[in-house]
Design a protein around this nucleic acid. Structure first.
Lengths: 208, 208
DNA sequence: TAGATTGTTAATCGATTAACAATC
DNA sequence: TAGATTGTTAATCGATTAACAATC
């Protein structure tokens, strides 16, 4: 194991969920042990990179054997902090917001959408997955009361910054935004983007 | 302008749509000229990086002045091949698929969803945005007939590989997958991922 | 002209990969 | 033991940033 307090690069952190996903699949299939070579082949990654990624956090493998699937899953879940409950709020109960709300089931990982907000009076009060859509005015109070730490933004790009400001003000520590817009937040708040228009446009470059 | 036939890195290609988005906003606001410094400040990027990115494709700026917003938009659209019509097919007309279909309006860029497919008999035949959901069996023929070049996958992870195989078989050149799974395709076909579960999980790492 | 800003080269930084001793 | 595979160091590769001559 490496010396402590080495900063972990974003690239490493982004690969951990990918490892986790495939390991979970292996566990389901009854596979008990996996080598970095097996993982690399399946995930299109260099085996040395996988070993290095994991070694940042501990000595999880056994020389000559590989990694115990169940143990590694447990460890990665700890590293990603997915071993504890994390309350999530979703802002923007339009089509995309509704679709994501229904994914609650899939993201078992103790991350759970516990509140929905929307600014349209006609949407407020409707129920999605047993959760009532609340007006924006209640966001600050609800976020605090429910200890929401992560916000998902599914409003139009033009409203994203305002919503992000409100979420941060209410105490949210991390944001996943689906809006096609760069969001500015204060130091310490983390923003990830899941902007498929950008993804689709860069895909077009590779045509032909 | 640099020597021709220099390979463009993926990182560069991914930033182009971000430039395009902000430039379009500037154009809407009547801004005629913008410097790499302005862009960098707004997009949290190094100005030198922006100049370098653009210089891969041509001399678009004017020394002492900056970049003409309208002209640069035109050029980036050409580079990304967004200046011609691109037919897109979406496979998986569930909640997420439906939500994305409705975004057609937003992705004006001549990329247009022209066909929807689903494997559930109860979904086939329903209409989303004036487009009928077709059964999977018709995919190959429809993709060829409509000259579909890009496929969007919004089926469960367990079915993603099969759908990708079918799309590639039918002649699709690029795929955007929302399914939480690594997809293997033959050389020459490009796959991008828009997997928000991965994004959300890596976000959890940064809590606290 | 003086000030601003590009395009590009060189310097730096960081991430990926190769190689191998340690060891199960 | 022999074969396999880890953890880690060193080498390589590539991407970002700084610096500056050219020039509008």
């Amino acid at each position: 194991m490496k010396t402590t307090t080495e900063k972990i690069s974003e690239a490493v952190v982004r690969r951990l969920p990918v490892y986790l996903r495939y390991l979970t699949e292996l566990l389901t299939n009854g596979v008990q042990t996996v080598s970095s070579q097996d993982l690399g082949r399946r995930l299109d990654l260099n085996p040395a990179q996988i070993r290095k990624d994991l070694a940042y956090f501990g000595d999880f493998g056994k020389k000559g054997i590989g990694y115990d699937v169940e143990y590694l899953i447990e460890k990665i879940r700890q590293i990603l902090k997915l071993d504890r409950d994390i309350a999530v709020a979703l802002v923007g109960a339009g089509n995309l917001g509704k679709a994501l709300s229904n994914y609650n089931v899939y993201l078992n990982d103790n991350m759970r959408i516990v509140a929905l907000f929307d600014s349209h009076p006609s949407t407020v009060g409707t129920h999605i997955n047993n959760l009532a859509v609340q007006p924006m005015e209640e966001m600050s109070d609800s976020v605090k009361q429910l200890h929401v730490r992560v916000g998902i933004i599914t409003v139009p790009g033009s409203e994203a910054q305002k919503v992000a400001d409100d979420l941060v003000q209410a105490g949210v520590e991390a944001i996943l935004s689906f809006a096609p817009a760069i969001i500015k937040v204060k130091e310490g708040v983390r923003v990830h983007y899941a902007d498929f228009t950008t993804e689709l446009q860069s895909l077009a470059f590779y045509l032909e």
